[in-house]
Design a protein around this nucleic acid. Sequence first.
DNA 1: CAGTAACCGAGACGGTACGTCGTGTCTTCTT
DNA 2: AAGAAGACACGACGTACCGTCTCGGTTACTG
Lengths: 186, 186, 186, 186
Amino acid sequence: MEARRAILDAAITLISERGYANVTIEAIAASAGVGKTTIYRWWSSKGDLALEAINDRVGEAIDFPDTGDISADLRRQLLEVARLLDGEIGVLFRGIVAEAQSTPTVGAALLDTIIEPRTRACEARLAKAVDDGQLRPDVATRMMVELIYAPLYYRLLFKTDPARPRDIALLLDYTLSGLRPVPATD
Amino acid sequence: MEARRAILDAAITLISERGYANVTIEAIAASAGVGKTTIYRWWSSKGDLALEAINDRVGEAIDFPDTGDISADLRRQLLEVARLLDGEIGVLFRGIVAEAQSTPTVGAALLDTIIEPRTRACEARLAKAVDDGQLRPDVATRMMVELIYAPLYYRLLFKTDPARPRDIALLLDYTLSGLRPVPATD
Amino acid sequence: MEARRAILDAAITLISERGYANVTIEAIAASAGVGKTTIYRWWSSKGDLALEAINDRVGEAIDFPDTGDISADLRRQLLEVARLLDGEIGVLFRGIVAEAQSTPTVGAALLDTIIEPRTRACEARLAKAVDDGQLRPDVATRMMVELIYAPLYYRLLFKTDPARPRDIALLLDYTLSGLRPVPATD
Amino acid sequence: MEARRAILDAAITLISERGYANVTIEAIAASAGVGKTTIYRWWSSKGDLALEAINDRVGEAIDFPDTGDISADLRRQLLEVARLLDGEIGVLFRGIVAEAQSTPTVGAALLDTIIEPRTRACEARLAKAVDDGQLRPDVATRMMVELIYAPLYYRLLFKTDPARPRDIALLLDYTLSGLRPVPATD
DNA sequence: CAGTAACCGAGACGGTACGTCGTGTCTTCTT
DNA sequence: AAGAAGACACGACGTACCGTCTCGGTTACTG
């Protein structure tokens, strides 16, 4: 079982150093001091391994804060996510998204183990804000999640430069101003 | 020169059928009835070829309509883009984005030849809408573009199911309501 | 100790079914319902195991008959050996000879435990025949053994079809006619 | 085509140095400065390659001399063969025979390309000797070949030490004395 | 209108990595 | 305490493509 640990660590290190596509299973095995067979015993592909590695790193983390102010809470959460994506995790994540484009199983696992759980958690917090009258009740929370997070991924996948905190805060502000309850204009 | 055509056509056909990552240069050559050398004579890599193929297909297309109503114009434009991404082009595009994650030259070319030009065109239309008083003047048009298009790419890259027209219209509405000029509340 | 039996039996069965080279230690272990470790505890290699298996099967068997007629005795012995080599034992034996070509220890053990003892026994019978005046006294009994048995092995190793009894009898006759005492011709 | 040459040479060198079973295709490729693919392009297996290598080395060689004296001719021929088998070729040949025990195609090819042609040539010379009254007409020439050559292979495959010229001459003498025409004893 | 270049198909080539199999060693858990 | 079960590092397998490289055999341009 300690072989698993060595493999996950080696995978993260190598991928963050050289980029997902430039890392071979053989290199991970060598770097972990492990036979290739041992990797294939536990994971069916590089994508599979990368997914577990990223989940292992991120864990249950990034639970949603709830101070009562949805705007402040989302900002804090988004900045935290952006910080993560700016480091090792970001390289890993970009690789997995790339892999997901051509490997359906990885695509499905990406949704199931990463995107969906966090989307759900976010929706819960948003629903509360709707109840509090801080957000429009007529917009599906799922769509709110998309509107809020999409720009972050857009920057991650299309730009080389990371999303700066200032920009993130602004993008969030603009998005939220479209999601606030319309003042009763009687 | 007709070899070029055959190659571009074969590339699009094969990639849309099997997915970007499952297509080899050799397969393209064979399918185009061409020697590998001929492909390498004109393109330096599969990503390079795919980029030209997609540009060849899409062309200058999708110029921004201007009826005076920014909301209607954007909707039309977005729906058109979504329609494109739902077919052959979408598969190709997803492959290129994937490739871009690990091949800097492809990433740069993706920005230069696809993203940037269209972003510029969109910004121009948005600037006009700002002048017309239909959009807030205090938001950078570049950010508006991100807010408007990001959800589309989010769906393309993370979901298996395509973005439905209804959803697209809604997402746009919500986004735009955050970008409208704030009524003087004196 | 019953594990040993199961292993030897499994080895013979598998090898005679699939051929020596197509049988792995793992397959023998699985078929014997035994852990690999148990095999390695007692034998150092597949060749080693095969050698013991064949000796176990053949045992002390094939002792040389002595009716007083060397020709008849050899014929009976040769036919018996040929019969053995035509069944399971033959497949095993061919595998061991093959192995012996590249594994010196197996080569040595093949000589020590199989070839030599039987050669000695044969020489003893031949020496008696020489004393009886049935064979030339000026030919080393060891060479006689070679002349008598070599054709049998030649057929075993080079031909797919087994040596037929008729052929064996003939070959022996021809060989022996060269080994009979030269009649005093003066 | 010069890759083929390099491969055949490397195969012979390596096999004669380390023994057939201890040489891998990868080692041959590396030693020949060639990709594995190139080997597999031309040969289907190590046995296949070894067979061509040995034929390439031996060539049409070893044609049967005909001085009119069958005994002298065979002796010369046998000594020549023994000389060959004592060097590089012998190691190669033992490996091929071993391989032939478990690989039917190699077994067949061994017969077809090496054993059979030479057996035929030998039979032709023997037939002539029969006509000349030097050998018994009632023994199939094919059997004569077996009787004459079998001891050579016996020594090659079962002993580590090579067959010495003196022994070979003796063995041949004894064999031939059984094959000479029986003097009319009426 | 012949000569010569550019372009092409075909595919051999040296490589790298793949995912699998079997080896012989070792540890763990069961009985 | 013995032994099955199987994880493990390792090395080789045979395959798939990579990108480079000759090879001949066309067009089609030019001198």
